[in-house]
Protein backbone atom coordinates (compact mmCIF):
# COMPACT_ATOMS: atom_id res chain seq x y z
CA UNK A 1 0.00 0.00 0.00
CA UNK A 2 1.27 3.44 -0.95
CA UNK A 3 2.41 5.79 1.79
CA UNK A 4 3.12 9.56 1.74
CA UNK A 5 6.83 8.78 1.82
CA UNK A 6 6.60 6.61 -1.30
CA UNK A 7 5.17 9.37 -3.46
CA UNK A 8 7.58 10.47 -6.20
CA UNK A 9 9.29 13.86 -6.07
CA UNK A 10 8.43 14.74 -9.64
CA UNK A 11 5.43 17.05 -9.95
CA UNK A 12 3.15 16.11 -12.84
CA UNK A 13 0.93 19.00 -11.77
CA UNK A 14 3.44 21.83 -11.64
CA UNK A 15 3.68 24.88 -9.42
CA UNK A 16 2.79 28.29 -10.82
CA UNK A 17 -0.90 27.54 -11.34
CA UNK A 18 -3.21 30.36 -10.30
CA UNK A 19 -5.40 28.64 -7.70
CA UNK A 20 -6.33 30.68 -4.64
CA UNK A 21 -3.95 30.23 -1.69
CA UNK A 22 -4.98 27.16 0.29
CA UNK A 23 -6.90 25.55 -2.59
CA UNK A 24 -8.08 22.05 -1.70
CA UNK A 25 -8.50 21.03 -5.34
CA UNK A 26 -4.89 21.90 -6.21
CA UNK A 27 -3.44 19.81 -3.40
CA UNK A 28 -5.66 16.82 -4.14
CA UNK A 29 -4.96 16.85 -7.89
CA UNK A 30 -1.23 17.29 -7.31
CA UNK A 31 -1.12 14.11 -5.24
CA UNK A 32 -3.54 12.23 -7.49
CA UNK A 33 -1.23 12.86 -10.45
CA UNK A 34 1.71 11.52 -8.45
CA UNK A 35 -0.14 8.26 -7.84
CA UNK A 36 -1.44 7.90 -11.40
CA UNK A 37 1.92 8.64 -12.96
CA UNK A 38 3.06 9.78 -16.38
CA UNK A 39 0.91 7.42 -18.43
CA UNK A 40 -2.28 9.35 -17.85
CA UNK A 41 -4.67 11.37 -19.96
CA UNK A 42 -6.79 13.95 -18.17
CA UNK A 43 -10.21 15.20 -19.16
CA UNK A 44 -11.28 18.54 -17.72
CA UNK A 45 -14.78 19.95 -18.11
CA UNK A 46 -15.39 23.61 -17.26
CA UNK A 47 -14.36 24.01 -13.65
CA UNK A 48 -12.02 25.95 -11.42
CA UNK A 49 -9.27 23.43 -12.01
CA UNK A 50 -9.34 24.00 -15.77
CA UNK A 51 -9.18 27.77 -15.35
CA UNK A 52 -6.35 27.85 -12.86
CA UNK A 53 -4.23 25.08 -14.35
CA UNK A 54 -4.79 25.30 -18.09
CA UNK A 55 -4.96 28.94 -19.16
CA UNK A 56 -3.81 29.31 -22.75
CA UNK A 57 -0.95 29.08 -23.52
CA UNK A 58 0.12 27.95 -20.06
CA UNK A 59 -0.57 24.48 -18.69
CA UNK A 60 0.20 23.00 -15.28
CA UNK A 61 -0.33 19.35 -16.28
CA UNK A 62 2.70 17.56 -17.63
CA UNK A 63 0.39 14.95 -19.17
CA UNK A 64 -2.03 15.50 -22.06
CA UNK A 65 -5.40 16.94 -21.19
CA UNK A 66 -8.56 17.49 -23.17
CA UNK A 67 -11.33 19.97 -22.60
CA UNK A 68 -14.67 19.83 -24.41
CA UNK A 69 -17.99 20.68 -22.80
CA UNK A 70 -19.26 21.00 -19.27
CA UNK A 71 -21.76 18.17 -19.31
CA UNK A 72 -19.95 15.30 -21.02
CA UNK A 73 -16.91 14.58 -18.81
CA UNK A 74 -17.63 10.89 -18.32
CA UNK A 75 -18.47 10.25 -21.97
CA UNK A 76 -15.47 12.20 -23.28
CA UNK A 77 -13.17 10.28 -20.96
CA UNK A 78 -14.77 7.03 -22.13
CA UNK A 79 -14.10 8.07 -25.73
CA UNK A 80 -10.44 8.78 -24.96
CA UNK A 81 -10.20 5.28 -23.45
CA UNK A 82 -11.71 3.67 -26.58
CA UNK A 83 -9.34 5.64 -28.84
CA UNK A 84 -6.36 4.59 -26.75
CA UNK A 85 -7.51 0.97 -26.97
CA UNK A 86 -7.53 1.24 -30.76
CA UNK A 87 -3.98 2.61 -30.60
CA UNK A 88 -2.97 -0.32 -28.43
CA UNK A 89 -2.21 1.85 -25.42
CA UNK A 90 -4.33 0.03 -22.88
CA UNK A 91 -1.98 0.72 -19.97
CA UNK A 92 -2.74 4.48 -20.02
CA UNK A 93 -4.98 5.76 -17.21
CA UNK A 94 -7.87 7.95 -18.28
CA UNK A 95 -9.16 10.27 -15.61
CA UNK A 96 -11.95 12.85 -15.67
CA UNK A 97 -11.59 15.60 -13.08
CA UNK A 98 -14.95 17.28 -12.69
CA UNK A 99 -16.30 19.58 -10.02
CA UNK A 100 -19.39 18.97 -7.93
CA UNK A 101 -21.56 21.07 -10.25
CA UNK A 102 -20.15 19.26 -13.26
CA UNK A 103 -20.98 15.94 -11.58
CA UNK A 104 -24.07 16.26 -9.41
CA UNK A 105 -25.97 18.62 -11.72
CA UNK A 106 -24.69 19.26 -15.22
CA UNK A 107 -22.66 16.10 -15.82
CA UNK A 108 -25.14 13.67 -14.28
CA UNK A 109 -26.68 12.14 -17.39
CA UNK A 110 -23.30 11.54 -19.04
CA UNK A 111 -21.97 10.16 -15.78
CA UNK A 112 -24.91 7.82 -15.34
CA UNK A 113 -24.61 6.61 -18.94
CA UNK A 114 -20.88 5.97 -18.69
CA UNK A 115 -21.30 4.17 -15.36
CA UNK A 116 -24.03 1.98 -16.78
CA UNK A 117 -21.88 1.08 -19.82
CA UNK A 118 -19.01 0.46 -17.39
CA UNK A 119 -16.58 2.66 -19.34
CA UNK A 120 -13.03 1.89 -18.28
CA UNK A 121 -12.19 5.25 -16.68
CA UNK A 122 -11.54 6.94 -13.36
CA UNK A 123 -14.06 9.66 -12.63
CA UNK A 124 -13.05 12.08 -9.88
CA UNK A 125 -15.58 14.46 -8.39
CA UNK A 126 -13.72 17.25 -6.61
CA UNK A 127 -16.43 18.33 -4.23
CA UNK A 128 -16.11 21.96 -3.09
CA UNK A 129 -19.84 22.23 -2.61
CA UNK A 130 -20.77 25.01 -5.07
CA UNK A 131 -19.98 26.43 -8.51
CA UNK A 132 -16.84 28.22 -7.37
CA UNK A 133 -15.40 28.96 -10.80
CA UNK A 134 -18.21 31.31 -11.79
CA UNK A 135 -18.37 32.97 -8.39
CA UNK A 136 -19.98 30.75 -5.74
CA UNK A 137 -23.40 29.68 -7.01
CA UNK A 138 -25.34 26.88 -5.35
CA UNK A 139 -25.02 23.37 -6.78
CA UNK A 140 -26.80 20.13 -5.96
CA UNK A 141 -23.86 19.35 -3.73
CA UNK A 142 -24.11 22.53 -1.63
CA UNK A 143 -25.01 21.63 1.97
CA UNK A 144 -28.12 22.78 3.81
CA UNK A 145 -28.14 26.38 4.99
CA UNK A 146 -24.96 27.40 3.17
CA UNK A 147 -24.72 30.94 1.88
CA UNK A 148 -23.93 31.26 -1.83
CA UNK A 149 -24.59 34.13 -4.23
CA UNK A 150 -27.74 32.35 -5.45
CA UNK A 151 -28.90 31.30 -1.97
CA UNK A 152 -28.47 34.61 -0.14
CA UNK A 153 -29.22 35.09 3.51
CA UNK A 154 -32.34 37.13 4.23
CA UNK A 155 -34.90 37.42 6.96
CA UNK A 156 -37.22 34.67 5.72
CA UNK A 157 -34.88 32.32 3.87
CA UNK A 158 -31.37 31.85 5.12
CA UNK A 159 -29.07 30.11 2.69
CA UNK A 160 -29.84 26.91 0.80
CA UNK A 161 -33.09 25.29 1.86
CA UNK A 162 -32.29 21.78 0.60
CA UNK A 163 -29.75 19.21 1.72
CA UNK A 164 -26.68 18.02 -0.18
CA UNK A 165 -27.22 15.53 -2.98
CA UNK A 166 -25.65 12.16 -2.19
CA UNK A 167 -23.77 11.35 -5.39
CA UNK A 168 -21.99 8.40 -3.77
CA UNK A 169 -25.37 6.72 -3.21
CA UNK A 170 -26.30 7.34 -6.84
CA UNK A 171 -23.07 5.72 -8.01
CA UNK A 172 -23.68 2.75 -5.71
CA UNK A 173 -27.07 2.37 -7.37
CA UNK A 174 -25.19 1.93 -10.67
CA UNK A 175 -23.28 -1.00 -9.17
CA UNK A 176 -19.97 0.30 -10.47
CA UNK A 177 -16.84 -1.80 -9.83
CA UNK A 178 -15.39 0.83 -7.50
CA UNK A 179 -16.78 3.92 -5.81
CA UNK A 180 -15.33 5.73 -2.83
CA UNK A 181 -15.34 8.99 -0.93
CA UNK A 182 -12.09 10.44 0.38
CA UNK A 183 -10.79 13.41 2.33
CA UNK A 184 -7.26 14.85 2.06
CA UNK A 185 -7.13 15.08 5.86
CA UNK A 186 -6.83 11.27 5.87
CA UNK A 187 -3.80 10.86 3.57
CA UNK A 188 -3.30 7.11 3.98
CA UNK A 189 -6.95 6.40 3.25
CA UNK A 190 -7.02 8.80 0.29
CA UNK A 191 -3.83 7.41 -1.29
CA UNK A 192 -5.10 3.86 -0.82
CA UNK A 193 -8.26 4.80 -2.71
CA UNK A 194 -6.27 6.51 -5.48
CA UNK A 195 -4.19 3.38 -5.90
CA UNK A 196 -7.18 1.04 -5.84
CA UNK A 197 -8.90 3.19 -8.45
CA UNK A 198 -5.78 3.12 -10.59
CA UNK A 199 -5.43 -0.66 -10.49
CA UNK A 200 -9.05 -1.64 -11.00
CA UNK A 201 -10.81 -2.09 -14.31
CA UNK A 202 -14.13 -0.63 -15.36
CA UNK A 203 -15.86 2.47 -14.09
CA UNK A 204 -14.24 3.88 -10.98
CA UNK A 205 -15.71 6.80 -9.07
CA UNK A 206 -14.06 8.96 -6.42
CA UNK A 207 -15.73 11.77 -4.53
CA UNK A 208 -13.13 13.93 -2.81
CA UNK A 209 -13.85 16.58 -0.25
CA UNK A 210 -11.92 19.68 -1.35
CA UNK A 211 -12.10 22.77 0.80
CA UNK A 212 -12.59 26.10 -0.97
CA UNK A 213 -11.36 28.84 1.39
CA UNK A 214 -12.59 31.60 -0.93
CA UNK A 215 -16.09 30.25 -1.46
CA UNK A 216 -16.60 29.00 2.06
CA UNK A 217 -15.35 32.25 3.54
CA UNK A 218 -12.79 30.39 5.63
CA UNK A 219 -9.12 31.17 6.40
CA UNK A 220 -6.78 29.59 3.83
CA UNK A 221 -4.74 27.69 6.44
CA UNK A 222 -7.86 25.81 7.65
CA UNK A 223 -8.18 23.76 4.43
CA UNK A 224 -7.08 20.49 6.01
CA UNK A 225 -8.63 21.22 9.41
CA UNK A 226 -12.02 21.60 7.72
CA UNK A 227 -11.52 18.41 5.73
CA UNK A 228 -10.77 16.63 9.01
CA UNK A 229 -13.75 18.18 10.79
CA UNK A 230 -16.14 17.23 7.99
CA UNK A 231 -15.25 13.56 8.50
CA UNK A 232 -15.16 13.75 12.30
CA UNK A 233 -18.60 15.33 12.51
CA UNK A 234 -20.06 12.72 10.17
CA UNK A 235 -21.04 15.27 7.51
CA UNK A 236 -18.74 13.63 4.99
CA UNK A 237 -18.45 9.87 5.67
CA UNK A 238 -15.45 8.00 4.27
CA UNK A 239 -17.00 5.12 2.36
CA UNK A 240 -15.93 2.52 -0.14
CA UNK A 241 -18.14 0.45 -2.42
CA UNK A 242 -16.42 -2.55 -3.93
CA UNK A 243 -17.72 -5.86 -5.30
CA UNK A 244 -21.24 -4.85 -4.34
CA UNK A 245 -20.37 -4.31 -0.70
CA UNK A 246 -20.21 -1.08 1.28
CA UNK A 247 -17.38 -0.49 3.74
CA UNK A 248 -17.10 2.35 6.23
CA UNK A 249 -13.42 3.35 6.33
CA UNK A 250 -13.59 5.64 9.31
CA UNK A 251 -16.09 5.98 12.11
CA UNK A 252 -16.31 9.53 13.54
CA UNK A 253 -14.77 9.64 16.99
CA UNK A 254 -16.30 13.00 17.85
CA UNK A 255 -13.00 14.88 18.02
CA UNK A 256 -14.79 17.96 16.77
CA UNK A 257 -18.36 19.12 17.21
CA UNK A 258 -20.62 20.22 14.40
CA UNK A 259 -20.75 23.72 15.89
CA UNK A 260 -16.95 24.04 15.62
CA UNK A 261 -17.08 22.99 11.98
CA UNK A 262 -19.80 25.50 11.15
CA UNK A 263 -18.19 28.33 13.08
CA UNK A 264 -14.96 28.49 11.01
CA UNK A 265 -16.87 29.04 7.79
CA UNK A 266 -18.44 32.37 6.91
CA UNK A 267 -20.99 30.63 4.71
CA UNK A 268 -22.66 29.20 7.87
CA UNK A 269 -22.34 32.37 9.95
CA UNK A 270 -26.08 33.00 10.05
CA UNK A 271 -26.95 29.55 11.49
CA UNK A 272 -29.65 29.44 14.17
CA UNK A 273 -29.83 26.59 16.73
CA UNK A 274 -32.78 25.15 14.74
CA UNK A 275 -30.66 25.00 11.60
CA UNK A 276 -27.86 23.21 13.49
CA UNK A 277 -30.47 20.70 14.74
CA UNK A 278 -31.66 20.18 11.17
CA UNK A 279 -28.11 19.38 10.01
CA UNK A 280 -27.70 16.99 12.94
CA UNK A 281 -30.96 15.25 12.03
CA UNK A 282 -29.73 14.86 8.46
CA UNK A 283 -26.36 13.45 9.56
CA UNK A 284 -28.11 10.94 11.85
CA UNK A 285 -30.47 9.91 9.07
CA UNK A 286 -27.60 9.24 6.66
CA UNK A 287 -25.62 7.28 9.21
CA UNK A 288 -28.71 5.24 10.05
CA UNK A 289 -28.92 4.31 6.38
CA UNK A 290 -25.22 3.41 6.26
CA UNK A 291 -25.58 1.21 9.38
CA UNK A 292 -28.67 -0.45 7.96
CA UNK A 293 -26.75 -1.44 4.82
CA UNK A 294 -23.87 -2.72 6.94
CA UNK A 295 -26.20 -4.82 9.12
CA UNK A 296 -27.94 -6.18 6.04
CA UNK A 297 -24.62 -7.20 4.49
CA UNK A 298 -23.68 -9.04 7.68
CA UNK A 299 -26.95 -10.96 7.72
CA UNK A 300 -26.59 -11.93 4.06
CA UNK A 301 -22.97 -13.08 4.28
CA UNK A 302 -23.69 -14.85 7.58
CA UNK A 303 -26.57 -16.78 6.01
CA UNK A 304 -24.50 -18.15 3.15
Amino acid sequence: MINIKDLPDEELFTAGHTACPGCGVALVVRNLMKVLGKDTVVYLPANCLLVFSATYPLDAFKVPYLHLLFENSAVAAGAIRRALKRLGKEHVNVVALAGDGGTADIGMQALSGAAERNEDIIYVMVDNEAYMNTGIQRSGSTPFGAWTTTTPVGKKIMGKTEHKKDVMKIMMAHDVPYAATASPAFPADMLKKFEKAKNKEGFRFLQIYTTCPTGWRAPSEKTITLAKMAVETGIFPLLEYENGLLTVNYRPKGKYTLEEYLKIQGRFRHFTPEMVEEVKRWIDMRWKWIRTIEEGQKVVSGGE
Binding site: T14, S53, P57, A60, K62
Partner: peptide, 17 residues
Protein backbone atom coordinates in the same frame (compact mmCIF):
# COMPACT_ATOMS: atom_id res chain seq x y z
CA UNK B 1 10.05 27.78 -25.91
CA UNK B 2 8.50 30.72 -27.83
CA UNK B 3 8.81 34.53 -27.99
CA UNK B 4 6.22 34.69 -25.25
CA UNK B 5 8.15 32.23 -23.07
CA UNK B 6 7.49 28.57 -22.36
CA UNK B 7 4.15 27.16 -23.55
CA UNK B 8 2.47 23.76 -23.43
CA UNK B 9 2.55 21.01 -20.78
CA UNK B 10 4.16 22.04 -17.51
CA UNK B 11 4.63 25.64 -18.69
CA UNK B 12 2.88 27.14 -15.68
CA UNK B 13 6.29 27.08 -13.95
CA UNK B 14 6.85 30.38 -15.83
CA UNK B 15 4.24 31.97 -13.62
CA UNK B 16 6.05 32.76 -10.38
CA UNK B 17 3.27 32.99 -7.80
Amino acid sequence: ETDAGLVGPGSFVENKT
